[in-house]
Design a protein around this nucleic acid. Structure first.
Lengths: 194, 194, 194, 194
DNA sequence: GATGAATGAGTATTCATTCAT
DNA sequence: TATGAATGAATACTCATTCAT
């Protein structure tokens, strides 16, 4: 009846879990709350997901896949390295703001994931970091970026500010995602001027 | 007997809680684990601290007081604003690395604090942020820093990287705290060059 | 196997709680004791009842509903008011003795109920009191009862002795419930003679 | 300094305990609350009283001694038995209202006393009951009271209403203690008219 | 007389997960 | 596919009492 116009059960569960994890934290959200918010029963959740942990992992996967795809697309473009790094730096800000709940959960609840899944997430994250670092190194080798700071540290500097977004950025505030992204990309590129 | 050479009970409890909260997270650390690690009983803990929450709050207070003091000292010095901002930016990195457990707990478990205590911590944090921002604005007004980026965003950019330290910095790694601090301060000041 | 001839879990829990609350008092009965006596686990109890408090509330509700029904039935009968009051007065004695554990719990543990639930119980109790008082007043207006004593006080006088039953009446003693009821109703009606 | 005009420590403790036991119940009042209300430390309490139980016992003793003395005085007077019973019945109402906290604690917390002390209190109570019953029996033998109701039951009838006072009587309400006492004694004596 | 730190056993409640239906 | 009753282990916190000082 009313089922027809609602998203399928797994999506409803993920959406409910995302909202609740972002609001209350992973450990403080009970499976009971999730199924109530999604309008299903516990049995249904365990039919689609092996554990509460799986829900968290799936939220991570969603964000990681999205960001990796977008970074790959930018990095492979045929354009000067300054432009590619600038676009990559700005793009990660925009997608983080566009998925602020996912990002908040990511930085806050990563360590609550099972050891095994954490290892996998860290591997994905490292791959992302390295792709980004390659851009910095490319510019440093070409002399368009200073090599006064190790590329690793440059990447961590920028990602730090991206993580931090979920602590202070609020949609509806004075700056749009694009404006923030522009400013943060400016700061990065200015910091890299030789 | 053995009591004489051990720190007093409240200190032992705080030290044990700090280590455990940093390792496992606040919610995943039980009061039982804390008192066992400190070698006391639950009753003793509740004799000195009103709740598990109080322990967390005390850890926060310790770090906040330390950082505020150091920033105030630097900001009031009689030196060019570039030098004061550089020293402040580097100093917060060093003290964060020197108290990496406290910092990790801070950024990871802040939202697990009771609403009331969270409010207080946020107020302290804001005071710190504003003091730092004042330095940036002073330089912008004097023309030594670019005003292409709002000062608030500059501060969040830098603090983002400071928060992020607890995610990647490991003592005993290739860079000393001072080296990291130098690099991060360089990045900030370069990003602010007009 | 053995499940078939045992009452369902919620009933078993209520029966066990009633016995234990009557024997030891509400505060001195642990949830652990209740579930052990009922032969279930704590989880099962909290599946059916929201709290220990809920068990107590349910015991109250059971007695209140029973007594209100019986009083209503008697009060609506078509008979002289002396006869209706006499029957009501005797009936409350008999049902109190028939449910002596419930009554004991009622008078001893009412104040241990949560404030909110206490309010509801008191409202129910007041309704019962007022129905009873209406009978007294009816007789006073008709001149068959003295109006030397305020009707409210008369009702409290009688209910006092009903409450008190759980302090001294023991089944198997020299008087049956009916005998006690007869005597107490006699005392009330004699006290009301003009 | 301020000690001189305050009652001695044991009295302060008893007064604080009485108020708290009446308000919250015995089990729900902690020793900590009592000593705080009395403005002393735990050590002081345990210096004067062997246990929390002792405090309760002492409150009982105080009320029992008072009521027994007053009943003895009335019973030994040289007056018709109707007058002596009437005065006794009214007097126990007045002293109960005058010590409503003690009475409330008595009827509500008796069963929380240790088994041993409970036995002693019950013995005192029985002595009181018997003295009162003797008056009823004296009147029944002399033909001034009906013997339609066993004297024991008559006594329990009246004491029931006395216990019940703490459930509904509030000082400052529409009736004074003496008015209530008069009405309740009237009811008793009318119920005993042959 | 009085302190207050410390004990240790106890409390109600929560929760992720399982499984017969 | 989905239900919901049931588990069992864990959780933060309380409290009467003791005892060295």
């Amino acid at each position: 009846m009313t089922d027809e116009d609602r998203p399928p059960v797994p999506q409803r569960l993920l959406a409910a879990a995302t909202r609740l994890f972002a609001d209350q934290g992973y450990d403080r959200t009970s499976v009971q709350e999730i199924v109530e918010a999604a309008g299903v029963t516990k049995g249904a959740l365990y039919h689609y997901f092996g554990s509460k942990d799986d829900l968290l992992h799936e939220i991570y996967g969603r964000l990681l896949r999205l960001q990796q795809e977008r970074l790959d697309a930018v990095a492979h473009r045929d354009a000067p390295v300054e432009e590619r790094l600038r676009d990559a730096a700005a793009d990660v800000v925009v997608t983080t703001i566009d998925n602020l709940d996912d990002a908040l959960i990511f930085f806050r609840s990563m360590h609550q994931l099972s050891e095994e899944k954490q290892k996998q997430v860290r591997a994905d994250r490292r791959r992302y970091h390295e792709r980004f670092r390659a851009l910095v190194e490319e510019g440093q080798r070409g002399g368009v970026f200073t090599d006064g700071t190790p590329a690793d540290l440059v990447v961590d500097y920028h990602f730090g500010s991206v993580h931090h977004l979920s602590s202070w950025y609020r949609p509806g505030g004075p700056m749009s995602a694009q404006q923030v992204a522009g400013h943060l990309a400016d700061l990065l590129l200015r910091a890299l001027r030789p």
